[in-house]
């Protein structure tokens, strides 16, 4: 790099750039927070949805599945599973695990109560209604 471009100039670009773009990021975040209620439909987050998310987390579902495309890639996307399969199927599926089919990927048995299964479905239903800019590309997730 040329001699006229000094270390002090490089340092100032670093500090100036970091501060400027972090403030811009905060500004965009502020704007996002204003628009989110219309997109995430938080008015529909019932107690059941809240409990469902807690069950989702304490069973580490994200360790095998993706949810809105984030998580692990070992098992199907669940952000739209409510649309793909519907509530009764989801409950029956979770209750029936593991399949025990030899050589096939297995999902654990979590021993959820009927109430807990309903909460799980409520959470997945709410998630499927988030405005995701039309992701995933099709129903298979």
């Amino acid at each position: 790099m040329s001699e006229t471009f000094t270390k002090a100039m490089a340092r100032n670009i670093f500090y100036g750039g970091a501060v400027f773009f972090f403030l811009l990021f905060l500004g965009l975040t502020f704007d996002t927070m204003q628009t989110l209620p219309k997109r995430d439909h938080r008015e529909n987050i019932t107690d059941s949805v809240v409990r469902g998310k807690h069950i989702w987390e304490t069973r580490d579902c994200i360790g095998c599945h993706t949810l809105l495309g984030e998580g692990a890639y070992f098992a199907p996307e669940l952000g739209n599973v409510y649309t793909r399969r519907g509530g009764p199927f989801i409950k029956a599926w979770i209750a029936a695990q593991p399949t025990g089919a030899p050589g096939r990927r297995q999902m654990p048995q979590f021993n959820l109560t009927d109430q807990e299964l309903d909460d799980m479905v409520a959470f997945l239903k709410w998630t499927s209604e988030v405005n995701t800019n039309k992701w995933p590309p099709n129903i298979e997730g």
């Binding site: 670093f14 750039g17 970091a18 773009f21 972090f22 811009l24 990021f25 965009l28 704007d31 996002t32 628009t35 989110l36 997109r39 995430d40 809105l68 495309g69 984030e70 988030v130 405005n131 995701t132 800019n133 992701w135 995933p136």
Partner: peptide, 20 residues
């Protein structure tokens, strides 16, 4: 890094409910 990477966080905000 910081000039590109901070706002670059947006590449995770495409499909999770965040604005277009």
């Amino acid at each position: 890094t910081l000039i590109t990477g901070i706002i670059g966080t947006g590449h995770h905000y495409f499909w999770i409910g965040t604005p277009e």
